[in-house]
Design a protein around this nucleic acid. Structure first.
Lengths: 332, 332
DNA sequence: TTGTACGCGTTATCAA
DNA sequence: TTGATAACGCGTACAA
């Protein structure tokens, strides 16, 4: 047991196989032609010594890390981990490794996070954190790090973006409900849940005003338990509601509270989830929700980013349109 | 807009502030004492030029990357993303970055994955993938990379491990049910779901034999939809079952199928989920499940790994005991 | 086909 | 308190 086994370097391989380190380098990179004989010899020495090139030194020499950074607010949400899975899948196939950075909704945090990404020399960054603004992201342009922004606008030569089409569909759902529905609509406002929610909230307000309808905005914690308890109270008084929730777990809190208060869905209480996941159809009653395949978003993001890195991304913008799946939590 | 802005190096900072690069290095590392005056000058130049030290070059020089690798089968499961969140949280506070590697249940994949981790020069690895065996993990010892294995045994000087206490509790639950329960128990066997499930399955078989009870093992896909459909068929014939599912979504599939087949829970159908998450209590009927706080596991893993890296981890083993929470999907 | 020598951006060990 | 200078492990012109 060598417990202080030092890393084998290219130099030792060279010495052991009686060639120069340049030749070893050629062998491991399959670059210029090396005589078959020496190649075999070198390879066998590499195997025998268990030599693995240092990614660090390679990166320093080539100015490429084959490492991409992923910035997310938190790894804790289902739709984010779906996306993460798509990202890691493609990265693995394309020979990139993934570095994870979370901002956790804190502004001070964000700048520290960005600094670290710069330091780490990633070849490119996928940003899925709409609390980061253009100014924040500009730092990447300053260090010429390509950025692919998901659900977040960004300008610059070396950047691309993936947009989510929620607003248009959302507006249609609301308008449709104004025509056919029989309840006031309550929008659950979550503090610090990102700009996407705020944008949708604005669409909600605008659409309501245009249709000359009553509407309610209600503050709500981003926690299943708290929301459940809040609605247990609310349902003591209000017995008819159409509630718009940001995510499935919040929607489930409302639905469970309704059921536990003896209300029926969708007759008394209707709930729409904005960001649907697989849990939309697992939870009963099944939740009507808007869906975007986040795993596919993750995959696409990597494809685009790699093209960006290799300077051949021509379509800088990509849009994922959401799909509305009506289930049992709403009438329409 | 400089769109080909080169990275500023320590050398340029030195030149611009009229000192040697050694002094600049001292300033950024707060190492040996630098005259306050020159220090200020250098710092202002650093700010003006927007200099950020290259993590790569630092790592090469110091042989420390402040980067840890995390190996997981997939990012797509709730309990894994919970753990991931704990990991990233602590890493951020301790100044480490996180590189994510997934094996996705494929053996060929695994070795490629391990190679990459070695190449990337991480200071340590957290392995949460119980399909990786000791032999696989030995590669890390060979390159003296400290490993913290979660739910996976590992030996060696530079290693630590976190174990999950599921078996003992599970055995008690089963034995208890044999005494009070009124149904045969069916264990859902998922192909390739890891050794944890296999271990628990073995406990199940052994406990059943000891108690001289009937038991059933049933093959099952790791998919909500498929399992749901399978059980819709099963419930046409069998009307009384106690089912043990690996995770919440599978448990939910059984429960929903039961409900949709007109069966009642827990009178007709009882379901136990082995790895409970927050969805255990969101899904209705609420799922009786065994729980381990995976976020805390993630945090602890990082603490232990960093201690390992810094050679001061004295308690090499840590065990998280699971807790059984009886909810509405079982009688006991 | 192979080897020499320099560069990548740092840290660290000497002297000064 | 500072400045040369040698590592760190590799890629790559250029020369041979």
């Amino acid at each position: 047991m060598d417990n202080l086994k030092e890393r084998v370097t290219i130099y030792e391989v060279a010495k052991a196989s009686g060639v120069s380190l340049a030749t070893v380098s050629r062998v491991i990179n399959n670059s210029s032609t090396v005589k078959e004989e020496t190649k075999k010899k070198v390879m066998s020495v590499i195997k025998k010594l268990g030599y693995k090139p240092s990614g660090l030194a390679q990166a320093l020499a080539t100015n490429k890390t084959t490492n991409i950074g992923v910035i997310i607010p938190s790894a804790n949400y289902v739709y984010i981990s779906n996306m993460l899975n798509g990202i890691t899948e493609v990265c693995k196939n394309r020979g990139f490794s993934v570095s994870l950075y979370t901002t956790a909704h804190s502004r001070e945090d964000a700048s520290v996070c960005l600094e670290r990404v710069i330091k780490s020399h990633v070849d490119g960054v996928i940003v899925f954190d709409d609390e980061l603004n253009d100014e924040d992201l500009e730092i990447f342009s300053n260090y010429s790090v390509p950025v692919l922004a998901i659900n977040n606008s960004i300008n610059g030569e070396k950047n691309g973006s993936i947009a989510f089409g929620y607003e248009h569909l959302f507006k249609k759902i609301i308008q449709d409900y104004f025509i056919k529905g029989d309840k006031d609509i309550t929008f659950l406002h979550v503090h610090n849940a990102g700009r996407l929610l705020r944008r949708i909230e604005n669409v909600f307000i605008k659409t309501s005003l245009e249709a000359d309808k009553e509407y309610n905005i209600m503050n709500c914690d981003d926690s299943y338990t708290r929301t459940y308890h809040d609605f247990m109270e609310i349902f003591k008084q209000k017995r008819k509601m159409y509630v718009i929730a940001y995510r499935d777990s919040i929607a489930a809190a409302v639905l469970n509270a309704a059921t536990d208060s003896g209300l029926s869905t969708p007759d008394d209480v209707e709930v729409l989830s904005i960001i649907g996941t697989k849990y939309s159809s697992i939870i009963r009653p099944q939740i009507s929700a808007m869906h975007i395949d986040m795993q596919e978003v993750g995959r696409r993001a990597v494809y685009m980013l790699i093209d960006l890195i290799e300077d051949r991304l021509f379509e800088r913008q990509y849009k994922f349109e959401s799909v509305y799946v009506k289930r049992d939590s709403t009438k329409y």
